Simulated assay, not measured.
Amino acid sequence: MSESWKRTTRKAEGTISTTRKPQPACDQHPVVSRTGPRRSESVRVAVLHAADDLLVERGFAALTIEGIAQRAGVAKQTIYRWWKSKVDILLDTLTDDAREALEWRTGEGSPEDDLKDHLQRVADFFQEPAGQVMQALLGHAQLDKETAASLRGGFLLEQRERDIAGLRVLLARAQDHTVDDRTIDHLVDLLLGPLYYRVLVFGKPIDKELVDTTARLVLTLARESASPEAG
């Protein structure tokens, strides 16, 4: 059973992130730890699960290594052996969860429908524990340069590359014209900017009208800015 499947199943069992209840320590499965050079996968998964659960329950400021260790059923020293701070743990859990949640899935419907579906998955992601981890890290990054550098140079950069590649594939299906790299880069800003603005600035959920309107406008702009393929 893959880790991504287990973490997806775990999210499904929780249904809504803000209503998930923590398991009592006595009900949790024992964690296998070891002191060798390789990190135990059971420890890693338990720590990541504990971190995003506690973030949702208590918020970023109240999240501590001690609390994560207690919830995960591991020693605090075990955590410090592999992560130097709670930020590093949250970056790991964000990378694990978001890779699948924000994946582009094109070719299943019309280009417009696929784009709307992708934006809706982005909207849903913000309501999940991983989305709340992302919001907490983005907020902390405004105050901490090290967090900002790690987040922007790691997860955000990788996700940006996936978004550019995904939109490029979708636009290739949508029209017989090519869109240059610089334009696609700007279109990604226009595609995701309204969603991030709604959530991060105003703290409001993303409604279907915003998703549909944004998808239509980006496709329209792509058509207007495209140039005929040579040949």
Rank of each mutant, 00 (worst) to 15 (best):
E103D: 12
M134V: 05
G67S: 15
Q142G: 12
S150N: 11
Q132W: 01
T213L: 10
L200I: 06
S33F: 04
D27F: 14
P37S: 11
T15L: 12
Y197G: 01
Q77K: 10
A69W: 09
L156G: 02
A230T: 12
E41F: 01
S40C: 12
L54K: 04
I79V: 14
G67R: 09
F202H: 13
L94S: 00
E57V: 14
K76H: 13
D207K: 05
D117G: 05
G14R: 12
E13A: 14
L115N: 00
V56Q: 07
D185L: 02
D53L: 11
V45T: 15
A222K: 04
R81E: 10
V47S: 11
S110E: 14
D124E: 09
H29S: 14
E128N: 02
F202C: 00
M134G: 03
D27E: 15
T178Q: 14
W104N: 06
E112S: 09
D53H: 14
L192Q: 09
R7N: 06
L137K: 06
E229I: 12
G193E: 02
E57D: 13
R34M: 09
V31Q: 07
G59M: 08
R223S: 14
V199R: 00
I184W: 01
Q175V: 02
K145Y: 07
E3W: 09
A148W: 01
A72S: 11
A75K: 10
K145P: 06
V56G: 07
E103T: 10
A172G: 15
D113W: 03
G109T: 04
G139M: 01
W82C: 07
L170K: 02
L221V: 09
G139Y: 01
L54Q: 09
T9M: 10
